[in-house]
Amino acid sequence: MDTAARHELRVLAAANPALPLLLTIGRFARPIRRIPRLGWVVSDPVTARLILNDATHFTLLGEGGVGHLWAQVLGDWVYDVFDGPGHHALRTQTRELFTEDNAAALVRRVIGPRLAAAGSQLAGGGTVDVADLARVMVGRIVADLLGLRVASDDDAAYREVFSTGEELAALALGTTTSTVLEPATVARAKQIVARMTSNVAQVWRTAPADTLLGRCRELGVEMRHTEGLATLLMVAGTETAASAMARTVALLHDTGAQDRLRAEPQRLPDAVREGLRVSTPAPLIGRSVRADTDVAGRRLRAGDRVMILTWTANTAPGGFSLDRSYLRDNRQLWFGAGRHLCLGAPVARAEIGALLSTLLDTGRPYRIVARRYRRRVLIPSYEMLRVSLAS
């Protein structure tokens, strides 16, 4: 096993010791197989995409789906906005908020100065903890999207924002076999949501039209739906984005591909895509069977659970490589598929690209001087990834 693959497995194992075993054994579940307590397991990208695109027979609102989990926290309106008639309308209304150009502008405005400071620190001979920097970057983005008031414009304030989003997402730990939350967990989650969205209503009424909340108002998105959208972006875009950023930096280092990228900076989009494919920060996607149907010769019954092993499907073609051609079957499976393809995908790509550009612009290779993996977390990631420039 090469260095990059070894560290990636350690990242997975630190998050959940059983995860590497499940994801590795899952290769034998192609295209689909029933496993006791887990339900139907899918590790084939074509089958996964078929299921994710089939809203007639599959839903994320039933047992096993993320919508079922968050409806318990946010309220019954989730059943309409997540997968019901209102879902298409909400995506249509908000699609222009997350174009590639808008995402790039958001990242430049919100985290551009912080990245410039990190680049100067490295150029001056200092060391930067990329994992911590990624969490600060995400905290800044979340604070901007939610209109949060922070105590001061320093890293500590934005670490706190990130930690709150992480705390909310962590409530999903242990839901692999059931997405039914305990009453105490629901109560705690509602407290966190209330704290994080306390300013949304006021900001929604007054925010400039070029911000997320202001644009939602201009587009006619109801305030409560805007609160829900903001909350879900916080949950889905905190740990996953930070994970992908740090792990992509590590992959470029561990494979030696950073030298190639420095010589061919036009390959930056390839590096971002490969980093997302190999890391696949959300390694599992759950669905519930809405109506009886046949998939790959198997009969699935209404109420069955389906677990899609996205990490297994995405990494089957091999490790990180800037030369890997476009994978038609996988495409953007790391962001989901169909009408539930992650709305914030352009923001995630822009964040990773901006971080990599900062490292490339130093003009020298970077080296990892220390690393540590996050333990017992929902999204596998680095706790610490310190880098400095080679002399």
Results as ranks from 00 to 15, higher is better:
residue 3 T to R: 14
residue 20 P to N: 06
residue 21 L to A: 14
residue 27 R to I: 08
residue 37 R to L: 15
residue 45 P to M: 07
residue 46 V to Y: 06
residue 48 A to H: 03
residue 52 L to D: 03
residue 53 N to A: 15
residue 55 A to H: 13
residue 61 L to C: 11
residue 63 E to Y: 05
residue 65 G to V: 07
residue 66 V to R: 04
residue 68 H to N: 12
residue 69 L to I: 07
residue 70 W to H: 05
residue 77 W to T: 14
residue 81 V to A: 12
residue 88 H to W: 12
residue 98 F to C: 05
residue 102 N to L: 11
residue 102 N to R: 13
residue 103 A to R: 00
residue 106 L to V: 09
residue 112 G to N: 10
residue 113 P to N: 10
residue 115 L to W: 05
residue 119 G to M: 11
residue 120 S to F: 10
residue 127 T to Y: 06
residue 159 R to G: 06
residue 175 T to H: 05
residue 178 S to M: 05
residue 183 P to R: 07
residue 184 A to R: 10
residue 185 T to P: 00
residue 190 K to M: 10
residue 202 Q to R: 12
residue 210 D to P: 00
residue 212 L to S: 02
residue 219 L to V: 07
residue 222 E to S: 13
residue 226 T to C: 12
residue 226 T to L: 09
residue 236 A to M: 08
residue 243 S to A: 13
residue 245 M to R: 01
residue 246 A to G: 06
residue 247 R to G: 08
residue 248 T to R: 03
residue 254 D to H: 11
residue 258 Q to F: 15
residue 260 R to L: 13
residue 262 R to S: 15
residue 264 E to T: 11
residue 264 E to Y: 08
residue 272 V to E: 08
residue 276 L to H: 04
residue 278 V to H: 02
residue 278 V to F: 06
residue 282 A to K: 06
residue 285 I to L: 15
residue 295 V to S: 03
residue 297 G to A: 10
residue 299 R to F: 10
residue 299 R to D: 11
residue 305 R to S: 08
residue 308 I to H: 02
residue 309 L to S: 05
residue 311 W to Q: 13
residue 318 G to Y: 10
residue 320 F to H: 06
residue 320 F to E: 04
residue 325 S to P: 00
residue 331 R to M: 08
residue 339 R to E: 13
residue 345 A to F: 07
residue 347 V to L: 07
residue 349 R to N: 12
residue 350 A to T: 01
residue 352 I to C: 01
residue 353 G to Y: 08
residue 381 S to K: 03
residue 385 L to G: 04
residue 386 R to E: 15
residue 389 L to C: 03
